[in-house]
């Protein structure tokens, strides 16, 4: 076959861009769950639903996992986060046609998750973090635009290799309006988590 029909990335599950440029059917979260229940989508498939489209996630490398876990542990261990919910690789549902799987997601503990139809409103989230190795371009590009569009107030992209963090603040319609790079030796202070400060160079990795 031709390039349109071949897998876009060899290390990923089969994907397609054959209908690029054409309007495509937008799935709802409920429809996707029905497809999983019917076995049409495998239980082991990992993907995000972006505005109704099913986008498989690339498998994560060891470095990604180590950085994610150490970073999450350092946030959880800090006493200032006692009243904050910290979810790791949790599916975050937003709207009828989207769900994402941020590596780390923080919101005030008094807000409870109930069900997928009424997940935490994006504006209540304190911080979303993606640790990126192979997905760096996507996380800094399209994903930042999606998160900004949702109104997530602060979004960090941690480069798993260099530990440089790109801090995104002030979400606009298209993207974040304040984007700064923070080196591993500098202090990271989330705007909405009072008292938390991190230096990624100090992580045990």
């Amino acid at each position: 076959m031709n390039q349109h029909f071949a897998a876009a990335y060899p290390e990923m599950p089969p994907t397609t861009q054959a209908a690029e440029g054409l309007m495509r059917r937008a799935w709802t979260v409920d429809e996707v769950f029905a497809l999983i229940e019917a076995g049409i989508i495998g239980l082991d498939e990992r993907f995000e639903l972006i505005g109704g489209e099913i986008v498989p996630m690339s498998p994560k490398g060891i470095r990604h996992e180590v950085v994610k876990n150490e970073l999450a542990a350092s946030i959880i261990r800090n006493p200032v986060t006692a009243d904050i919910s910290i979810h790791i690789e949790s599916t975050y549902f937003t709207g009828k046609r989207s769900f994402f799987e941020p590596d780390i997601l923080l919101w005030p503990k008094h807000i409870r998750r109930v069900d997928k139809d009424n997940d935490i409103p994006p504006a209540e989230l304190l911080l979303a973090i993606e640790v990126s190795d192979s997905s760096l371009g996507y996380d800094l590009g399209r994903k930042a635009a999606f998160y900004a569009g949702l109104g997530i107030r602060e979004y960090w992209v941690v480069n798993a290799r260099s530990l440089v963090t790109t801090v995104h603040r002030q979400p606009g319609d298209e993207n974040y309006t304040t984007i700064t790079e923070v080196s591993p030796d500098a202090v990271l202070e989330p705007a909405f988590v009072k008292g938390l400060s991190l230096r990624l160079a100090e992580l045990d990795i």
Binding site: T15, T16, Q17, V55
Partner: peptide, 10 residues
Amino acid sequence: TLAAEGLPRR
């Protein structure tokens, strides 16, 4: 939708 234009899709 064209939401995931440019991304690999299932």
